Simulated scan of single mutants.
Amino acid sequence: MADLKEDKIDFRKLEKELENAMKADAKYWRENDAKMRAVEQRVESYEQFRDIVAASHLQPLEKKDKISESKLQQPWNTLATSDDKKQELRLTRDTEERLSAGNLPHNSLEFTRDWRRCQDRYKLLMTIGGTRLEKVMKSDIGMGILGEILVSLNASFVPEDATAVTDILECLPNCGRFSLALDFLSRQEKQSAKELVEKLEDSCESNEDEDVKSLREELQKLGAIYQLNSKDEC
């Protein structure tokens, strides 16, 4: 005869398992929706993509929601903030001294490190040049780096650097994952690329040097490569 105690079902345990399974399923679909939104928004970096997914469980505040004043009593750690700034300044100074001494990055990771710490990014690009930049980022362009390069070149461009800047724009498409980086350009970054090419074209128009004039055909090719005439442009 069967033991009724052994056949007894633990409904509390089943209910708990069902609840956990439903939470796991809800989390999966919530994060999946967040990933799809991030792709549709064409976020500028993997960090932004990760943050959107990580914050998928948060809900926006409504008018009836109130933030307790007791939660705002904790002061900021001003000492830690000051130390962080000092550390950042020291790293920036050390990086610029090393670059000035000719110790340029050898790979994508080193370039990204120096790029984040360097204050004069335009000078860094002019120092490295297109040919070396292509070798440095042969494996891949760091997430968000392409757009930042285009913005920096456009913001600090001077006509005297037309040939060097064009060389950089020509070499970047040969770097790893260029197409992916291009797809993730923001509207502002695409606008910077368009303005930069227009500035290069203007420098050709105003310069009688034959070498500079020969850049016109190359600039037309660059316009196609960087999709400056696509429907997505600003």
Score class of each variant (00 low, 15 high):
residue 20 N to L: 14
residue 179 S to T: 08
residue 76 W to Y: 11
residue 175 C to S: 04
residue 75 P to F: 10
residue 38 A to G: 07
residue 132 R to S: 07
residue 14 L to A: 02
residue 125 L to N: 03
residue 117 R to E: 07
residue 199 K to N: 07
residue 113 R to G: 00
residue 94 D to R: 15
residue 229 N to M: 08
residue 140 D to T: 10
residue 83 D to M: 13
residue 119 Q to M: 12
residue 224 A to V: 06
residue 230 S to N: 08
residue 81 T to Q: 12
residue 173 P to V: 04
residue 111 F to T: 01
residue 36 M to K: 15
residue 48 Q to Y: 05
residue 206 S to Q: 14
residue 19 E to T: 09
residue 97 E to M: 15
residue 156 S to V: 03
residue 35 K to Y: 06
residue 142 G to W: 06
residue 130 G to Y: 02
residue 84 D to T: 03
residue 172 L to F: 04
residue 10 D to V: 06
residue 194 K to M: 13
residue 104 L to F: 13
residue 93 R to G: 04
residue 130 G to D: 05
residue 154 N to I: 02
residue 233 E to P: 00
residue 161 D to C: 04
residue 47 E to L: 05
residue 14 L to Y: 12
residue 18 L to I: 06
residue 47 E to G: 01
residue 111 F to R: 01
residue 113 R to E: 12
residue 139 S to E: 15
residue 2 A to H: 14
residue 163 T to E: 12
residue 203 S to W: 03
residue 42 R to Y: 05
residue 39 V to W: 13
residue 136 V to Y: 05
residue 151 V to C: 12
residue 87 Q to C: 04
residue 93 R to D: 11
residue 177 R to T: 07
residue 158 V to A: 10
residue 17 E to M: 15
residue 198 E to L: 11
residue 8 K to Y: 13
residue 83 D to N: 09
residue 52 I to T: 10
residue 10 D to R: 11
residue 172 L to M: 10
residue 140 D to S: 13
residue 124 L to M: 15
residue 210 E to M: 14
residue 36 M to E: 14
residue 3 D to H: 14
